[in-house]
Design a protein around this nucleic acid. Structure first.
Lengths: 136, 136
DNA sequence: CTTTGTGCAAATTCTTTGCACCAAA
DNA sequence: TTTGGTGCAAAGAATTTGCACAAAG
């Protein structure tokens, strides 16, 4: 709890109860959850929580670089507190998102060559994970 | 028109009037359009066209590997008839999507190492394009 | 007090579905 | 005549917005 609160302060986010809980959840559940997943899990503990607050908070966190938003699965946004350089693997069978290490400096040269400025790089790999392969 | 029709047949898609027109549009407008963009442009020429048909058709094309769907911009799907290996650059300012060449064999080893099978790799780069940089 | 956060309900956006009609084989 | 394509209207899912109330400083 206190660790999360300090983290929030460091990124200029006022640590309200809900914000701390949501950030805490993200730190302890590295499953790239959707807003709804976070809401469903936390509402058990905080019955007054609303989905709107979860959305508001995640948006604020993203703006303040506390997390990145990933759009790898069907029509939903997922959130990742690991803001370091890495790729994501989406298993189309079990719908899980896995982190994949990478040394991506990929094709940034081409963009820069034309004078473009890069803010974000997303590498999304889709397929079937090892567990789902086995079950065949 | 005939070129498109043959292309469709080759990928096991019956070349109806609408399908040919939509495929034609995609071939001649390499702007990664959304379903709505395609609809708005084509309805001028084909007043009876419906957005549903555009969606149906794009879905069919995707299933038959005539195009890939990209989710790089905010909440919309865009379509690209270039199914070869390349990355996409999204300019957050002008909202355009540009093709970026790449030699991506990126971090596929890590996935395969764990026994996963890769179907698709999407590389999305976001930032500001050269034109939008200049205007500052 | 005054500002900021929270949460309900309604709205919005993109996409899909159900269904009836139409066209082609 | 049977199959498959088209298109309208309605539904659906994820996210955002407007607004009122609550909390914090």
């Amino acid at each position: 709890m206190e660790k999360s609160a300090n983290m929030l302060r460091k990124f200029d986010v006022k640590p309200s109860f809900q914000r701390i809980k949501i950030f805490d959840y993200l730190l302890n559940n590295r499953i790239h959850p959707t807003a709804d997943t976070i809401y469903r899990d936390l509402v058990k503990e905080i019955p007054t929580l609303s989905l709107t607050t979860v959305y508001n908070t995640l948006k604020l966190f993203e703006k303040n670089n506390l997390l990145i938003s990933i759009k790898i699965s069907e029509n939903e946004q997922r959130f990742d507190v690991d803001t370091s350089n890495h790729a994501h693997f989406y298993c189309k069978t079990c719908k899980e998102v896995y982190d994949i290490p990478t040394e991506s400096a990929i094709c940034t040269k081409t963009v820069e060559q034309y004078g473009g400025k890069i803010d974000e790089i997303h590498i999304y790999i889709k397929g079937k994970c090892n567990k789902c392969q086995e079950g065949e």
